[in-house]
Write a protein that binds this DNA or RNA. Structure first.
Lengths: 202, 202
DNA sequence: CGCAATGCTGAACACCAGTTCAACTAACCT
DNA sequence: AGGTTAGTTGAACTGGTGTTCAGCATTGCG
């Protein structure tokens, strides 16, 4: 509920070291819990239990639950950033980005954090800022690689393409998790035909 | 946790009437809570509090929380079915369906129930069955209205189109809830250009 | 009028949650 | 060796949750 986090406003309260092994373990286990049971199941006590740790120890490294969730998010966001940077540097940037959107493991976390951000004001700003930054990077990528060809061939702008590909990727993931896969192969085929038409084959 | 619901396996336990006003109020309030605070906040006690009712009364009408959530889902699903039927009967069925996908109020519930279904085995089957049925209806609609033109113009199948439009609609909603809207207008424009090219204007 | 059904309440049980705090232990630095 | 520091624990407080159940009140029906 508190708006302040990750700061040291209180005079005395001790906080565990940033580079502790235990701290890393806690972040690992929390990410695993979020993946398997959803963000709502990621309570400090549950994490402690699954990590074989004392609940208080979790709060020694992460004073509040929001601090813990934020740490998991930041690590995941850094990984996403690296994947997008790699896509940008590859010789097939657009297709690499499309593979990024289709990465289930990444999308799983991403979807959980969107849901989380919508319900947790303390975390929301960071997540939405990162989402905006990713979007901007993707737009730049499409502009650089596809240029005018995109608008001419499809009437789409780079920004529109980014929203659509991200949306399709998330839809494929969420529906598959639900157990619904009808139309998925066809949607993938459709997008890839689209990309084929846009990109000169090497 | 119990696999059986909505049945009367126990010999004596009383359950409130299906057509009770109080019951309808409970369903109303639950839907509202889900919309405003997410499915995870839809506890029977919280619903009772917001409805000004005794917690036990909620369990009088809905023995388990899953029963309550299922009732909300079923009402929402029926409304979705009606909207799709209306789209099918309209003189612009494809555009009506696209508007359905862009309906924030409907999508909000839909997204919550997908998330819910992924985590609650007792409810999952009904939700995934309904999602599959909606998909089938949409595919039939696209086949009937667009026929061969769709594949010729875009290389997409009706099933692929259904997945993509649903996905874009959900993405627009989720990102907007997060506070990210960059590229949204462009994505909408892109889809509508696409539909314009597919459908002969009257 | 009495009686059964229906709507509703209060209390209780067992659980899980976040968070705090004082105190224990081990390591390390000088 | 002595003292500071970091890691760790146990217990406690507060509050939310699902669920049950016996019993109250009211209504309507025979």
């Amino acid at each position: 509920m508190s708006a302040l986090s990750s700061q040291e406003p209180s005079p005395k309260r001790r906080i565990g070291a940033e580079k502790s092994e235990t701290r890393a373990l806690i972040v690992d286990v929390t990410e695993q819990v979020i993946r398997e049971e959803g963000y709502a199941a990621a309570s400090t006590r549950r994490v402690a239990l699954r990590a074989g740790l004392n609940p208080s120890l979790v709060h020694y490294y992460f004073p509040s639950t929001d601090d813990l969730l934020l740490a998991v998010f930041e690590r995941g966001a850094a990984q996403s950033d690296a994947m997008i940077a790699a896509a940008l540097a590859s010789n097939e940037p657009v297709r690499a980005l499309w593979q990024f959107f289709r990465d289930d493991s990444r999308t799983a976390l991403s979807v959980e954090f969107i849901a989380l951000a919508i319900r947790r004001p303390a975390i929301r700003e960071q997540i939405s800022a990162h989402a905006s930054a990713m979007r901007a990077q993707q737009i730049a990528l499409f502009e650089r690689v596809l240029g005018e060809r995109l608008a001419q061939a499809t009437g789409c702008s780079p920004a529109g393409l980014s929203v659509i590909l991200a949306g399709v990727g998330r839809a494929l993931f969420m529906e598959a998790a639900l157990g619904v896969t009808s139309g998925h192969d066809e949607a993938i085929q459709c997008v890839e035909k689209w990309l084929d038409a846009l990109i000169p084959s090497p």
